[in-house]
Design a binder for these strands. Structure first.
Length: 472
DNA sequence: GGAGATTTAGC
DNA sequence: CTAAATCTC
């Protein structure tokens, strides 16, 4: 019996076996499957923490494929060139992949798909990263949604594709093509001193993601709506890290949330809404790709941002002098993550009180977040800055003190991450000084700086800047 | 074109 | 109480 020609599964941000449409199609085809991960310029261009974390995810996923008698082939270079070389080498006739939606990846994938199809290769993209394809959700007028609530109402009762089981095995090719060594790629190089500190906080891989989801559904989802706002509580799912690399599917979260809701866990309703916020971010990045680089509302182009390099450095270091802001920036550096509400607070402080362009914050998050997601990061920063999607009629400015009183009433979050405010700082807070660049010359014994900006003054300045924008 | 609504607010 | 724009139907 002659063997069918192999399918190349181009693995990207879908490092999972279960509920993966492209893998399911490849496995069901009865053809040999060659899973390929390409370190292309877009991977090379990732920020330090997400690039390092991606490498750890790829390593873990390669072991999963090994365990089922298959392999993950690693190649480096321009994606189309790598694919064409491999196609020629093994006589593949198909290249299939899971779709991505940010402008850089869309542009690359369009070019790859057109070129491969021109040469007679069966090039196909599959869903799997989202619950709903961005072009399938439309307003009554046939346009895309620009406000979250109507988007939510439009999707909340839609059917989500049923779960796809992980294949038990994959047909191997007659001969495995050669592969790079992951270590040679040096994906963790830019992490420097941070890697050892951040590593214990990670949950890498499909099994870890599933375990974490089960824990969240069991322990936290029932009170999610009430508890998620508190900064020191472990009340959130923590699954953004796995979602962004595709180590778990959004469908798995959706079904678990629905099931919990059916079982009477009321907080699950809010969990479903948060999953749809991720969908909404992808809806926006697909329909308005400029959201990653320019003001989403062009009326904001006249906003008088300031350019204070010293202030920005102190924001990055967690030395603004505002405890809750500084604690959050330290949490980011030590864990590679930050509580959702804290993200809003530090973003509001940077863009409003410090009048710094949202892109500066977006770039720093893209360097530091192990759960960095192109759509969520862009939407989040523009939402807080005011230049993004939000129909609210006023210029929203968070007061960090008020917020800390509400959401960290006993100061536990601030003491957990800010060494300089405790006589004997906890290990979590001291870890920052082992992780941060030596060139910053920081120590836990240093005095707290005076606030960079007085809170009332900062608010006034931001409101004046808003007036200037509106008059221009 | 009009009515009704709009994630997390601050003073 | 403020201030009051934009979206969706």
């Amino acid at each position: 019996m002659t063997q069918l020609s192999p399918v190349i599964w181009w693995v990207r941000r879908d490092l999972r076996l279960a509920d993966n449409p492209v893998l399911h199609a490849a496995a069901s085809s009865d053809r040999p499957v060659i899973a390929l991960f390409i370190c292309d310029p877009l991977v090379e261009g990732l920020g330090a923490a997400p690039k390092w974390r991606l490498g750890l995810g790829v390593a873990r996923f390669a072991r999963c494929l090994d365990d089922m008698g298959s392999k993950l082939i690693l190649r480096r270079g321009d994606a189309l060139t790598v694919l064409q070389q491999l196609i020629a080498q093994i006589g593949a006739t198909a290249v299939w992949w899971g779709r991505q939606y940010d402008p850089d990846q869309v542009a690359r994938d369009k070019k790859v798909k057109a070129a491969l199809r021109d040469s007679g290769v069966d090039a196909q993209s599959f869903s799997g990263h989202l619950l709903f394809e961005p072009w399938q959700v439309q307003t009554g007028q046939g346009t895309f949604y620009q406000v979250y609530s109507p988007f939510w109402r439009a999707v909340k009762d839609l059917d989500v594709a049923p779960h796809l089981p992980a294949p038990e095995c994959l047909r191997a090719p007659a001969q495995w093509p050669d592969s790079d060594s992951l270590a040679d790629w040096g994906l963790g190089r830019a992490m420097n001193r941070g890697a050892d500190v951040v590593h214990p906080h990670l949950h890498i891989g499909e099994d870890a993601a599933r375990t974490r989801l089960a824990y969240f559904i069991d322990r936290n989802v029932a009170d999610y709506q009430d508890q998620r706002e508190f900064l020191d509580q472990d009340a959130c799912s923590g699954l953004s890290e796995n979602l962004t690399y595709g180590e778990i599917s959004p469908g798995a979260l959706w079904r678990a949330g629905q099931h919990a809701l059916d079982a009477g866990k009321a907080g699950a309703a809010h969990f479903l809404k948060e999953i749809v916020w991720r969908e909404f971010a992808y809806h926006l990045i697909f329909h308005t790709p400029h959201i990653v680089s320019r003001n989403w509302r062009d009326g904001w182009d006249s906003f008088p941002w300031s350019n204070d390099g010293t202030g920005v450095l102190r924001w990055k270091q967690g030395r603004t002098g505002i405890d809750v802001i500084d604690a959050a920036m330290r949490e980011l550096y030590v864990t590679g993550r930050m509580h959702n509400r804290a993200r809003m607070l530090v973003a509001s402080y940077l863009t409003k009180h410090m009048l710094t362009h949202w892109r500066v914050g977006q770039d720093w998050f893209a360097q530091c977040l192990v759960d960095w997601d192109p759509a969520a990061n862009a939407m989040g920063w523009q939402w807080v800055a005011g230049s993004g999607p939000d129909a609210a009629p006023y210029f929203r400015i968070f007061n960090p003190d008020t917020q800390a009183r509400k959401f960290d009433p006993e100061g536990r979050y601030r003491r957990k991450w800010l060494a300089e405010i405790s006589a004997s700082a906890p290990e979590t807070a001291q870890a920052f000084f082992r992780a941060c660049p030596r060139s910053w010359q920081l120590s836990p014994q240093m005095a707290r700086p005076n606030p960079l900006v007085d809170l009332a003054e900062g608010r006034k300045i931001a409101l004046q800047a808003y007036d200037i924008k509106n008059k221009t």
